[in-house]
């Protein structure tokens, strides 16, 4: 999967659209190809903008409303630009009863953002998810592709420090 973060603005968007065409060529005639194509596009662009979604809907010969219906159904898809790292706090049953909500509150306080929002330095986006299938590790959070298990509010700072923004980048920004 191509993975380019949306905040790296030096990546030419036109170039990304050219790469998107290759992805669309591969998936547009495949049964059930829409969701993988959307996932890859989100990985490339960082989020799914109207322009990207309209291009995808044309390629798949589906209406924009239909594609939007899929995108808005799944919480993993985002139509808003997101931070360099996406934190997903599981609030599935097991995580919820083992303190997922306290972990979420602690993250909100630490990052000073609400659910669905991105930090001022565009480093973190905070989201809520339902069950990663890691109930034995509850409460769990995911940062990008990494699952962190048995998270406690007191451990949060240490976890986040692994993903701290590159100071040089922050200064540049």
């Amino acid at each position: 999967m191509t993975k380019v973060c949306g905040c790296e603005s030096h990546v030419d968007e036109q170039q990304l659209f050219l790469e998107l065409e290759k992805v669309l060529d591969e998936y547009k005639n495949k049964e059930g190809g829409l969701i993988p194509a959307l996932q890859i596009a989100q990985g490339m662009f960082g989020h799914l903008s109207q322009a990207v979604l309209q291009r995808i809907s044309q390629a798949f010969d589906k209406s924009y409303s239909e594609v939007a219906g899929v995108v808005s159904f799944y919480s993993f898809f985002s139509t808003q630009p997101r931070g360099k790292h996406v934190i997903r706090v599981c609030l599935g049953t097991a995580c919820y009863v083992r303190g997922g909500k306290q972990v979420l509150e602690a993250l909100k306080k630490e990052l000073n953002v609400d659910v669905g929002s991105t930090t001022g330095d565009r480093n973190f986006t905070l989201e809520v998810a339902r069950c990663f299938g890691a109930c034995g590790l509850a409460p769990a959070i995911m940062i990008d592709e990494d699952v962190h298990q048995r998270v406690k509010p007191t451990k949060i700072r240490a976890i986040l420090s692994q993903y701290a923004a590159d100071t040089a980048e922050v200064e540049k920004a």
Partner: peptide, 20 residues
């Protein structure tokens, strides 16, 4: 075969309508 109206979002927040 126009599909202007499609369920958007999910659960209680479902809107039957145009994109988003």
């Amino acid at each position: 075969q126009v599909s202007a109206l499609v369920p958007q979002y999910r659960g209680f927040k479902t809107i039957v309508g145009p994109a988003f």
